[in-house]
Design a protein around this nucleic acid. Structure first.
Length: 365
DNA sequence: GTATGCTTTCGGC
DNA sequence: TTACGGCCGAAAGCATAC
């Protein structure tokens, strides 16, 4: 039996939630922004609504640039915790329709409905309509749905018709659907891969499908070469599977001014470390890797990380380790920092295994 | 050589 | 050219062990 996979994507999610909360905003260009600690219009665009997109505003753009494109737009600060709550309710709706379910991000999910539809794409389509109706009715939001025989196809399908779209690609339509598309439409083909494909005159998926496997492996290595070979033909066997718990917890902030003063950086970082520590504690986790993240004046990102021999959970452990990492970083780079952050990862649950703290005490005896 | 683990970078939302 | 958040997961790059 063939698979029937849905990809559901909430339309301009943050902006749509704000419109829903304040209907007087409807029809106006709305731009949800992440303002930085620098004040004024320092910061970036998280999500523009469709009106704002018509004026050329895109996510990731600086707020200043967006204001030049649409001075009369409505610029609102992002309320991420609120969007998170709305997202959870909607994900529960999606989950109710799926044999297996995979949440990809705050506004996106895959639903495998193969069993429920018995492999029938017409049933998949009516299921998609039901989902859209329920989200509209219960949460007053629209979404775009793609239906295909796998994740790769359903994800691209969902992006074809937005907002409030529904795109069905049957197995026999896959090649016709895929071949005219630009290779960058394939999830996993970004700037680097695009440039490499340009070198061999491959611009569309159809052109990529004509390249033989050895050539792709030679150019991209085994894993990526194989993946490109399959993806170009619409082949993707990745299962829709429930994602486990969060693997990394981090916080980053923009410094009030550029600096390379280790004291100033360490102070800011310890505030962030506190927040991270609270979450880790609440979830009862132990971490083994600590990462210091920095963005220098030239906007380049850098990381310094350390993996401990033994899982730990103490705040002081985070702060002391990151202090050393800051020192390492500053001795290797000479530009002042614009942003700084911290991340812990490599989690384990406290089991019978000793923590670093317990291990140290054990040694003392 | 291949598997494994750690560090760094990339890229999506 | 200038100006540019705050996350996350995955891939790439590298070292080490067998």
């Amino acid at each position: 039996m063939n698979r029937v996979v849905l990809h559901v994507d909430l339309d301009a999610f943050y902006a749509s939630v704000e419109e829903r909360e304040d209907p007087t905003l409807k029809g106006k260009p709305i731009v949800i922004c992440m303002f930085s600690a620098r004040g004024g219009d320092s910061g970036a665009v998280a999500t523009p609504n469709y009106e704002a997109r018509k004026k050329g505003i895109r996510s990731g753009m600086s707020i200043k640039q967006a204001k030049r494109l649409s001075p009369d737009g409505i610029y609102l600060p992002a309320r991420r915790d609120f969007y998170e709550m709305v997202s959870e309710k909607i994900m529960d709706i999606f989950r109710g329709y799926a044999d297996s379910f995979e949440q990809v991000s705050i506004d996106e999910a895959f639903l495998d409905v193969s069993i429920e539809t018995n492999g029938d794409f017409n049933k998949g389509k009516s299921l998609a309509k039901m989902i859209k109706r329920e989200v509209k009715k219960k949460e007053n939001l629209t979404c775009s749905v793609g239906i295909g025989p796998n994740k790769l196809i359903s994800k691209i399908a969902a992006s074809m018709e937005k907002p409030d779209g529904l795109t069905l690609v049957r197995p026999e339509e896959v090649e016709g659907f895929l071949y005219p598309l630009d290779v960058t439409k394939l999830w996993g083909v970004g700037g680097k891969t695009k440039d490499a494909l340009d070198e061999i005159d491959v611009k569309t998926v159809g052109e990529l499908a004509k390249v033989d496997l050895p050539k792709l492996v030679e150019k991209f290595g085994n894993a990526k070469g194989q993946w490109l070979y399959n993806a170009s033909k619409g082949i993707d066997n990745e299962p829709v599977k429930k994602r486990g718990e969060q693997e990394q917890i981090g916080r980053i902030t923009t410094l009030e001014e550029d600096t390379r003063d280790p004291g100033v950086i360490a102070l800011k970082i310890s505030e962030l470390a506190n927040e991270v520590y609270e979450i880790v504690k609440e979830r009862g986790k132990l971490f083994r890797t600590i990462t210091f993240y920095a963005v220098t004046k030239d906007m380049k990102g850098h990381t310094k990380s350390r993996t401990l021999g033994m899982p730990g959970s103490d705040l002081s452990l985070i702060i002391e380790t990151v202090r050393e990492l800051i020192g390492d970083f500053l001795s290797e780079n000479d530009l002042p920092l614009r942003r700084a952050g911290i991340r812990v990862s490599n989690f384990s649950k406290p089991s019978g295994q000793k923590t670093l703290f317990e291990y140290k005490n054990f040694k003392k005896k």
